[in-house]
Amino acid sequence: MPIYEYIASTERGCERCRAGFDLLQRLSDAPLQQCPHCGAPVHQRISAPTVVAGNSHRTSESHLEKHGFTQYRKVSKGVYEKTAGKGPTHIADDGK
Rank of each mutant, 00 (worst) to 15 (best):
T83P: 01
V75S: 10
E5Q: 12
L64E: 10
F69K: 10
K86M: 05
T50D: 00
T59L: 13
K96M: 02
R18V: 07
K86F: 03
Y6S: 06
C14M: 12
E61R: 12
N55S: 03
T59I: 15
A30R: 14
E61W: 00
Y4A: 05
E5A: 15
K66H: 15
A30D: 15
G95W: 06
E65F: 03
D94P: 10
T83W: 01
A92H: 08
H43D: 02
R58A: 14
H67P: 00
Q34C: 06
Y80V: 05
R16G: 06
P2H: 13
C35I: 14
K74E: 14
K96S: 07
P31V: 01
Y4Q: 05
D29T: 10
A8K: 09
R16Y: 02
T83E: 04
T10W: 07
V42Q: 04
S60T: 14
E81H: 08
S47M: 05
L24Y: 09
H63C: 12
H43K: 05
Y80E: 03
A53M: 03
L23P: 01
P2L: 15
Q71Y: 04
E11I: 07
C14K: 08
R73W: 00
F21L: 01
D29Y: 03
K82L: 13
N55M: 01
P41A: 09
Y6N: 10
I46N: 12
A8S: 12
C35K: 09
G78Y: 04
A53C: 04
R12V: 15
K66N: 06
Q44H: 01
H57L: 00
D93K: 02
A40R: 06
S60L: 12
A92P: 00
G20P: 02
D93F: 04
Y72H: 04
Q71F: 03
R26G: 11
P36R: 06
M1P: 10
E81Q: 13
G87R: 11
E61H: 09
T59Y: 08
F69I: 00
C14E: 10
A84N: 01
F21V: 03
Y4E: 06
S56F: 09
C38D: 07
Q33P: 01
E65L: 10
P41E: 11
G39K: 10
R18H: 06
L27D: 15
E61Y: 02
S60K: 13
A53R: 06
H90C: 07
S9D: 08
Y6D: 03
V42Y: 03
G13T: 12
S62K: 03
A19Y: 00
H37K: 05
E11G: 09
Y80K: 01
E61Q: 11
V79A: 01
G78L: 09
L64F: 11
R16H: 07
I7G: 03
K82D: 02
R58C: 12
T70N: 02
Q71L: 11
E65H: 08
G54D: 04
S76R: 13
G78N: 05
L64V: 07
T50Q: 09
S62W: 00
A48Q: 09
R58F: 06
Y6K: 07
F69L: 10
Q25T: 07
A53Q: 11
I3Q: 13
L27E: 15
F69R: 09
S28H: 03
S60I: 01
Q71R: 06
H43F: 04
D94F: 08
H63N: 12
K86H: 07
V52A: 11
S9N: 04
